[in-house]
């Protein structure tokens, strides 16, 4: 090794030292994040391209209005706000872990890493709930066949188009199967049962539907689900990787690897990745929930 001691009077870029004294590992992580930003950038730009080439999109306040254990209450964006808060807060605990690392306080690093990992797991759990809610929840939508069908939100189904009413709705009801009509009644009339509706014909069923209570939309562009699941899934995969990395970092802290090494730089590198994942979420949040 030619350079065991580094003279302080050499310039940053003259060789023999790392510019700005940044270690190669940190520099490498920054370049990786730049590269990954291009991956997400490509996804989000293609999302924007497609979304604004279509006449119709979804109303996020309407799609994302559910909250676990709150049933049918309309709470627009409440749950995603909680998710976002959890993820941002886990960035705060990450900063604190890095800070404790600078102070060479192993116990402190451990505690804050545990909180960061819990934050990441909590975010992923929230995402799992939201995905399940969208994938399993069925909604009444006017499809291309001209009839009302029950659709869940998938990469090829989107029940979240504009609400229909008036003549369009009454026409659609005439083409709708009795099974769907019964579900529409059951949606608001809690005293009715499937057995009590069994013998009614289509016209009788339609007369029992309270059109002010049942929300029927057109089926919207399938691209919504495709991009939503595609991009939040890709981001969720990043969060998942981040959680795994953080668990490895926690284990290495516990085993005293960084204490032996004399610095907690690995925690800093994991932190860079974690903050990046949070930052990306801010953009995903903006694109899918706010705009």
């Amino acid at each position: 090794m030619s350079t065991t001691a580094i003279p302080t009077n050499t310039k940053w870029w003259n060789g023999g030292r790392s510019p700005f004294n940044a270690s190669y590992g940190k520099v490498m992580m920054w370049y990786f994040l730049m590269s990954d930003a291009f991956t997400f950038g490509a996804f989000l730009i293609s999302y924007a391209t497609l979304r604004f080439s279509l006449n119709d999109w979804v109303d996020a306040n309407h799609v994302f209005n559910a909250f676990p254990f709150f049933g049918h209450q309309d709470l627009p964006l409440a749950f995603v706000s909680l998710m976002t808060f959890i993820l941002i807060f886990s960035s705060v605990t990450m900063v604190l872990a890095v800070h404790e690392g600078h102070k060479m306080n192993r116990k402190g690093v451990e505690n804050y890493m545990i909180l960061t990992i819990l934050g990441g797991i909590a975010f992923l759990s929230c995402q799992a709930w939201e995905w399940t809610h969208l994938l399993t929840g069925e909604h009444f939508a006017l499809t291309k066949s001209g009839a009302i069908e029950m659709l869940n939100t998938t990469v090829s189904h989107n029940p979240w188009g504009h609400r229909i009413s008036g003549e369009v709705l009454t026409n659609a009801l005439r083409h709708t199967s009795p099974d769907v009509l019964r579900s529409m009644i059951l949606e608001h009339n809690h005293s009715a049962t499937l057995a009590s509706l069994k013998d009614l014909n289509a016209n009788e069923l339609i007369s029992k539907i309270d059109l002010n209570e049942v929300y029927v939309g057109r089926s919207g562009p399938a691209a919504f689900g495709s991009y939503f699941f595609g991009i939040t899934g890709f981001h969720g995969f990043h969060v998942f990787s981040g959680v795994v990395i953080n668990i490895v970092m926690l284990a290495k802290t516990r085993l005293g690897h960084f204490e032996q090494r004399g610095h907690y730089e690995m925690i800093e590198k994991a932190g860079l990745y974690w903050h990046f994942v949070d930052l990306v979420w801010v953009f995903v949040f903006l694109c899918f929930y706010l705009i």
Partner: peptide, 13 residues
């Protein structure tokens, strides 16, 4: 990239 930026020997500006 990292090797070129960080690992140049002394004098290799």
């Amino acid at each position: 990239i990292t090797t070129i930026l960080n690992m140049r020997t002394k004098g290799m500006s």
